[in-house]
């Protein structure tokens, strides 16, 4: 579905990614793990066209996308839940969802507002509240729901549960489990290793701008030394 080959990216003269290889299989949940500052968000920014590549190729279903602007990448079917939520505070919850509603990728059973509200039912009571009137958890659920409204082929969640209460985190993980069951391809960046081991199929660990380990949930669960070394668990 989504392949990154030898991706290199820089912030000014400072190189942040050094030949990152990554592959997301159709319908899989893949994680990108690592401590802070290792390049996980830079990978996301590179995929979304927010950071030009110095070298490498990014393909979505065989099509090179690394030179496309962000809006064109989104229209090809990559939905992003960005770090820090970034909902639109001056739009109501309903408007936040409606503005994103599209089926660029031509999904046969597209997500509608009813669908996403059934995944996050807590949002149903807050439809007419402005974004800045929602709690942190509601904003995060809205960010995920909004990304679904573009009916993405690939959904990317960058630190989606950061700073949330355990109950709200559980709600987010429950939502992701429902999406996985529906066959949604998902890339998750998070630090909650226990939940990720339950939900995800494949894991990639990053260190200093490189993918240093890749494997399955059972492999990662069994390797406590690696968890401690790279993830600080």
């Amino acid at each position: 579905m989504l392949k990154l080959r030898r991706v290199e990216a820089c912030y000014g003269s400072s190189q942040a990614l050094f030949g990152v290889d990554l592959e997301l299989a159709d319908g899989s949940v893949t994680t990108l793990l690592g401590r802070n500052g290792m390049g996980k968000t830079t990978v996301v920014r590179s995929i979304m066209g927010m950071l030009p590549l110095r070298a490498g190729v990014i393909r979505l279903e065989g099509r090179e996308i690394q030179r496309l602007p962000s809006y064109a990448i989104a229209r090809l079917g990559i939905g992003l839940v960005p770090e820090g939520r970034r909902i639109f505070p001056n739009l109501t919850l309903r408007e936040n969802l409606l503005v994103a509603a599209a089926n660029y990728a031509g999904a046969s059973e597209p997500y509608t507002m009813e669908h996403v509200l059934s995944i996050f039912p807590k949002l149903s009571d807050r439809l007419n509240h402005f974004g800045n009137q929602l709690s942190g958890g509601e904003q995060q659920m809205l960010a995920v729901a909004r990304a679904l409204m573009i009916n993405p082929r690939v959904l990317i969640l960058d630190e989606a549960t950061e700073g949330l209460a355990p109950l709200i985190r559980a709600e987010i993980w429950r939502g992701l489990t429902i999406l996985k069951e529906k066959g949604q391809t998902i890339l998750v960046i998070d630090k909650n290793i226990d939940a990720l081991l339950r939900i995800a199929d494949h894991h990639h660990i990053m260190e200093n701008g490189r993918v240093v380990w890749s494997g399955s949930s059972s492999q990662l669960a069994a390797d406590k030394t690696r968890q401690s070394r790279y993830l600080g668990v």
Partner: peptide
């Protein structure tokens, strides 16, 4: 509010 965010919605 956030032009980049709107672009990443297509």
């Amino acid at each position: 509010q956030n032009e980049l965010r709107m672009q990443s919605l297509g």
